[in-house]
Design a binder for these strands. Sequence first.
DNA 1: CAGTGGTCTAGACCACAAT
DNA 2: TTGTGGTCTAGACCACTGT
Lengths: 237, 237
Amino acid sequence: MEAKYKLIYNEIKDRIIHKAYVPNGQIPDELSLCKEFNSSRMTVKKALDLLVHEGMLYRKRGQGSFVMELNTTSDRLNIPERELLGLSKSTHGKTKSKVLEFSLIFANEKIAKNLNIKENDPVYNILRLRLIKDVPYVLERTYMSPSLIPGITEQVLTGSVYDYIEDTLGYRIASAQKTTRACTSNKDDQQYLQLQTYEPVLEIEQIAYLDNGRPFEYSFSRHHYDLFEFTLYSVRY
Amino acid sequence: MEAKYKLIYNEIKDRIIHKAYVPNGQIPDELSLCKEFNSSRMTVKKALDLLVHEGMLYRKRGQGSFVMELNTTSDRLNIPERELLGLSKSTHGKTKSKVLEFSLIFANEKIAKNLNIKENDPVYNILRLRLIKDVPYVLERTYMSPSLIPGITEQVLTGSVYDYIEDTLGYRIASAQKTTRACTSNKDDQQYLQLQTYEPVLEIEQIAYLDNGRPFEYSFSRHHYDLFEFTLYSVRY
DNA sequence: CAGTGGTCTAGACCACAAT
DNA sequence: TTGTGGTCTAGACCACTGT
């Protein structure tokens, strides 16, 4: 059973996306929405709060709530950085993964710390190349603990690891911490992402968490600098 | 008058920061917090929701709420990406700004669109070099509309433009849309940020908004790639 | 079972903007 | 004054976890 505020959230988001509510236009006031969705004001508010935090709406006290006009005119693939399961979802599943390395190694101090396991515990060591329409775009190094995420195979890695974790293992992925930086490219980057030596990569270091608070994945995604950008919307409390 | 949920939010955040609530430890349940802060459960919940969204807490239904353990061990200056007024605030005001260009130009199509003004309307054209302890770290190109933000002078630009906008003009800065990408460096970058030709920059394109929904600033911040990284925490709804 | 968080209600009063 | 969003209450019932 989906929560009512999520239904309202999705419905209003749909209306914004499909221009039933137009950019900079006013949406119905909260009491009207309460009536329409047959819910209390707190519930409507919770739905609207989510949209405000996502940068789809802004509100003016005493005046109303309005649709944000967002401007993304870019020749790069623009990824909303709030999307947790970003990669395959943002591209509508038009991606393929090629497994370059798949082995078990002993966790070093950094991996152990970030996965909340002991140093020298075994971890999967995975290197994958992600492609869209056969164009390589991300070189991704991933570490996971086999004791938490058992049964990873090359076939799982070629498909969606996240689907495997949620659908097969029955866990729920809850959150992620992402650190973004620009780096000069190394030989692997240049080879697999078809970069010149002077061309950089955009690296995202990620720790992903299950809803029980346990970190299950530690990864470094090195993006072709020219094909990608990440957009974030932030509001002040 | 500060809202009660913000007081609770700040108090609990303080306790986490000062280790009164320890990493991975459980914090008091919501009813206890209601009693302590003499408030209703919805109010306590709202405060906790903010902390969950910031990645300081996680909750397990049926069990309790716990302090997130965050890992940031880096040799770069790590900026929490949700900080709106990032630059000077994150570095505790140890920054200086050197104004390299300050002129008026006619808005081109892109600037006009992002500042929600007409093409060829006048805009401030500002180029500043930001320094920490005399080390250059960001080259920042900024466009603003003089009709919305009047009275910008070189002195304002050397200090905090955001303080000027909020304290002197009496506006409230509400939100920002930020797009992050890696770029090869150009001659200006190399000169001012002291980069080799093969070294990249991390560019953040930003549109900043007032609380009335108007965009007031359109900027490109080109960061020295080796000195910076940005960390974001995202949760699934 | 008791204890926890997740959702929801039906109001209330306040702050702010436009008229 | 009216209409809007901002905050807050005092409950209620549900879902999940551990004993």
